[in-house]
Write a protein that binds this DNA or RNA. Structure first.
Lengths: 347, 347
DNA sequence: CCATATTATGCAATCGTTTGCAATTATGAT
DNA sequence: ATCATAATTGCAAACGATTGCATAATATGG
């Protein structure tokens, strides 16, 4: 490893001058600077970030904690964050919690030792507790809120998205609309559930607990929940399903196939969060689409701008709009005149 | 930030002793150790990894460079690596190159400053050049080989996978089998192409350049290539397609749909690399499935074990077996008796 | 040409650990 | 007790950068 001293020797100046030539060029005379840069280039010098960070007490490093890198939603989020970070010359440490609060805790502890400048996190339900491990770290939460006071959040309009989706189903003529909701200790699930309830209420449709099943955001949970809802007696069985996240939607669709139920003739289905899978499966899924990449990018930009301005990070909460994409998985319920089908809106 | 000194004061010992109590417990007396650990716990002490790494000249950190985090294949790879790293208490820096050699170079430079212990990389075509930036860094290449001498690789049996796929098509009765191959400066593409050629040769089917189109591994490339192949005059148009990676397979399938060609009746298609999409689309795709997670996990284990043994890293090359999953996208070509369909093997 | 202001460099302390070596204390055999 | 030996602990010097302060070099102005 070639160090400052090596460069200093070659350029015949003190290490201090080399340091300045590199990080505050205006402080050193033109000629010397040239000589130093030349020497550095010659030796292939690369500053030791560890030493630099240690001394500066700041690292140009960010922590990113997501809950499931295999979920394209999170992968996209991560890409948005990384791109933004790279733009500003920050490096990011990526951790995966698999929705496990313990892993989250370990990740935070590991991160802590690396003195990141900031943290971007998709919080697990225990995050409020876990985040106490890093009390002074500028943090922004993505996608969900843990309810930790003083933390900024960047989320999408979950309530609005759910409303649009459910409203769409109601307009098609559905009355028994089931929902596969996420864990109710996660804010996105709560909000999407709220949008669902509100919209039913507005339409004068009574809320039925039987039609709302929780799941743990994984494909298998969606499958089980859908199986349960769709094997209710015909009188109670929902004619439409609103599913709270992308993975569970996959599970739900697979369950529907297992049961041999036809979409959309016998069951309409709307998912939250778009994906290639949703767009290209047959029939193509009607979904609430989120600006996922932008969510990550923006969250990172927000964090970085507050860092650079050295501001005390006002606890703002940003909401991004979602869009509703009508495809082929929704139609009027059985018994309704199929003429309505023609009226379906296009995306 | 609470430091060693703080703990030392509280426990009434020297910082040196605290350090030892934490990293070489057997060197300090039972009683003192207890007192120190207690103090550390009380203060919520977390070692400053920067300082530690600086002094130890080793960081318990790995670099991971992949080319596309949005591709589930790479995301899965990353998860395998991370899980293995976490198991051994290593932290990983993740970088994304988007197949861009310049980004790869930047990533390597950024990484360099953080003194990682090792590097896992899915190399871009310029990696052989770029890797010179980190000459002494223990490196293992995943999925592909850049041809850099002395570097270990962990890959799958691409030739074998391609052979099985093409053989399967031949046995079904296909003679004009097209291939959408990747960039020929990437080893996986070369190998899969080789398997394709060899199998044709063995079966006595002449190799036709017209039927082999290169692509840049992205969905859109697959689409374009498929469009080109499938609009050849009927006499030349392939009756089956072997596609070299998952993203291009998606594109190819979409192209087929655009053209209104039915799979598998009018066209058989086999992809390389399985995915949820491939498994659940209609008709479900026949694929060469790779042990993706294991690839990442194993690569990381390999790297770590060579690190811990302090060995000079023999340049081994590990090949993992692929498996062939026959689903619904392959059938005998038009004009062949459909009776053959029944004989299709199961996975 | 000298005093003073300005600019460019160097010195040395520092960030928080680790570790070779020396100093201290405990242990056990005589 | 006494002394050799072993087990603990502390001192102080690193690791590679940054930076306040002092100093040397140069420029400015009268």
């Amino acid at each position: 490893m070639v160090s400052l001293d090596d460069v200093a020797k070659l350029a015949q100046v003190s290490p201090a001058t080399v340091s300045r030539a590199l990080s505050r060029p205006e402080m050193v005379a033109e000629a010397t600077r040239e000589r130093i840069l030349q020497a550095a280039r010659e030796l292939g010098y690369q500053p030791n970030q560890l030493a630099r960070s240690l001394r500066r007490r700041s690292s140009r490093t960010l922590g990113l904690i997501i809950t499931d890198i295999l979920n394209p939603f999170h992968a996209t989020l991560a890409k948005g964050v990384q791109d933004a970070a790279e733009k500003h010359n920050y490096t990011v440490f990526l951790f995966n919690t698999d929705e496990d609060p313990e892993k989250e805790q370990r990740a935070l502890n590991a991160l802590r030792g690396h003195l990141p400048q900031g943290l971007l996190i998709v919080p697990t339900p225990k995050a409020k507790e876990n985040l106490k491990l890093v009390p002074k770290l500028p943090t922004v939460e993505l996608d969900r809120s843990s309810g930790t006071p003083g933390v900024r959040t960047v989320m999408v309009d979950n309530v609005g998205g759910a409303r649009t989706a459910v409203q769409h189903l109601i307009e098609l003529g559905h009355r028994r609309i089931g929902m596969i909701v996420g864990r109710l200790d996660i804010s996105t699930a709560v909000e999407r559930h709220l949008g669902y309830r509100e919209t039913l209420a507005t339409a004068g449709i009574p809320y039925s607990e039987k039609l709302v099943l929780p799941g743990n955001h994984r494909e298998e949970d969606g499958r089980k929940a859908a199986l349960a809802l769709l094997t209710l007696p015909p009188e109670e069985r929902p004619t439409a399903l609103f599913v709270g996240n992308n993975e569970m939607t996959v599970g739900a669709v697979l369950a529907v196939r297992e049961l041999g139920i036809r979409i959309p003739q016998e069951l309409s289905i709307v998912g939250f969060d778009d994906s290639r899978w949703a767009a290209t499966m047959h029939p193509a899924l009607t979904v609430v689409a989120q600006p996922t990449y932008e969510l990550g990018f923006l969250a990172c930009e927000t964090l970085l701008s507050s860092l650079s301005r050295g501001q005390p990070a006002l606890p703002t909460s940003i909401r991004l709009d979602v869009s509703f994409i009508v495809r082929e998985s929704t139609a009027p319920p059985d018994g309704f005149t199929n003429g309505l089908k023609q009226q379906r809106r296009k995306p």
